[in-house]
Computed example of a mutant assay.
Amino acid sequence: MTRRAILTTGLGLLLAACGGCKVRGEAVLNEELLARAARGDAAGVRDALAAGADIEARDGLRRTALLLAVAADHIEAADVLVAAGADPNAQDSNQDTPWLVTGVTGSVAMLKTLLPARPDLTIRNRYGGISLIPACERGHVDYVREVLKTGINVDHVNDLGWTGLLEAVILGDGGLPHQEIVALLIAAGADVNLADRDGVTPLAHALAKDQTKVAALLRAAGAR
């Protein structure tokens, strides 16, 4: 092998090695970004992004840094990511998105943090529901009140054939939080006679579950 060939081969190996280092370096940065977002280290998130981490990097469950921050309700970390352009609609392997997760946690502060990123209010979770529905089920009164201001579809029907109103009755306990949610949905124009796929109305479900106060609210709104 000539001297030139040796030098050329050596340079090629060096460049390949450097390229590998670069790839490994990016992977490390991405892992750091995800870890820092998960523990709410806003400064660390900012540093990782500044160093070149991919803002849409995914973990083993395809969760982004923003989704991890949202799930743990780390407002400051999420704010940094939103300001940097993180996607509020990026779905993980469970079909959750940062925006959808706010309906599960019920965090009004996180809802307000994500709204400037213009999340898709129609995107569906693995049950075919939008963020309003799990919030109704879980009794997140303040979240329901706030999300209804966005113009989200109050009568969206999920894959089970249930609206937010039906979930509030069927999966709720009829207590004060679910009563308030039913009242909020009614005030927002929810169809109180929109039945499930078996033809059972919210009122019929409320009566079957002995939710007398919920039933009274529904009757007052014209439920049959």
Rank of each mutant, 00 (worst) to 15 (best):
W99N: 01
L115I: 05
L114K: 00
G10H: 10
T113S: 00
N153H: 12
H178S: 00
L194T: 12
L67Y: 00
G139S: 08
L66A: 02
G60Y: 00
G106P: 09
I186W: 07
G222I: 07
Y143A: 04
G19K: 00
H156W: 01
E146W: 14
T8L: 07
A215K: 05
V147P: 06
G199P: 05
D198R: 04
E146H: 14
K112W: 02
V70F: 00
R46L: 05
R36V: 05
Y127V: 11
A187C: 14
A27H: 09
E137A: 11
K112H: 12
V200S: 02
T201G: 06
R3K: 06
G172N: 05
R63F: 06
L217T: 04
A220P: 08
G161V: 14
A5G: 06
I133T: 04
L184A: 11
A69I: 05
G222P: 12
A223E: 02
A208N: 11
R124H: 12
R24Y: 00
I55Q: 13
G52N: 13
H140E: 14
A195W: 14
G129E: 05
I75E: 02
E32Y: 01
P88M: 08
T212Y: 03
E180Y: 07
R219F: 01
N158T: 13
R197N: 09
V192L: 10
L115P: 00
I6M: 10
R118F: 09
A84H: 03
V70K: 00
I75N: 05
A53I: 08
A135H: 10
G164A: 12
R126M: 04
I186E: 10
G161Q: 07
I6H: 14
Q95S: 06
L176V: 13
A65K: 02
G106F: 01
A216I: 14
R145Y: 14
T113A: 02
A223F: 00
A183S: 07
L166R: 09
L160Y: 01
V157Q: 01
D198Q: 07
D159V: 10
L13N: 01
G129M: 04
G189R: 15
G174M: 02
L184I: 04
V200R: 01
G129D: 09
R36H: 06
R118D: 03
T150S: 04
A190I: 11
D155Y: 07
A17C: 05
A37L: 14
T122Y: 15
Y143K: 15
A57K: 11
D73I: 14
D210E: 12
L165M: 14
G12D: 04
V70E: 08
V200I: 10
E56G: 13
A208Y: 08
V141P: 00
A38M: 10
P88A: 03
I170F: 15
T97M: 03
L132D: 01
A43H: 15
L121R: 06
E146I: 11
V169C: 13
A37N: 11
L11W: 15
L165S: 05
P88R: 02
R145F: 14
W99G: 02
L148M: 12
P88E: 02
K22Q: 13
I152Q: 01
I123H: 11
T150P: 06
D191R: 15
A16E: 04
L33Q: 09
A35R: 08
V144S: 07
E180W: 11
A43I: 09
R24G: 04
A206P: 07
D96T: 08
L61Q: 08
T8C: 00
D79T: 06
D142E: 15
